[in-house]
Amino acid sequence: MSTLKPTVSEIDHVQGGNSASIEIVEFGDYQCPYCGNAYPILKEIEETFGDQIKFVFRNFPLQESHEFAFRAALSAESAGLQGKFWEMHDALYENQYRLADDLFEELAETIGLDLEKFKSDSELDSTKEKVENDFESGIRSGVNGTPSFYVNGTKFDGEATDLYQMLKESTE
């Protein structure tokens, strides 16, 4: 059974209840269509279960398969440095269908980032390292495709819809 390595810490991007009993970690790629399909379902899960769950996103860009995946991950992390990781995360998935070189700055502007800072943060080694460390944690945790989900530290073998179903049953 594959488990999450390392466990969730303060360097992770967390949404929802901090003391929630259910912790969901997604390893995702902003250009992966399956992750794009999972995105609205995860939103629904978050709405349905509110503070009962804690949702964490880690980057797993398949950059050889998806040419914009790595840059998209850098953009989300850079937005995070201005306290707007989730705004960028959401904007990227909502605009996945039109991913292109000039989209990142457009989204940065839309969500109200300091554009100069966003651009320079995207170039930082530390930003790149954050994405690469997420990727490596995915490999060590047994990620075998995107999206991959971990529930309370254990790999969940299923899609977002299966996850939703499982949560409904377990909180009944």
Binding site: P33, L62, E64, S65, I139
Partner: peptide, 16 residues
């Protein structure tokens, strides 16, 4: 299929 393809995954891991 690509996102869950084993070879595509290993391709990303060559440096490791």
């Amino acid at each position: 299929p690509v996102c869950s393809d084993q070879m595509a995954l290993y391709n990303e891991m060559l440096k490791y």
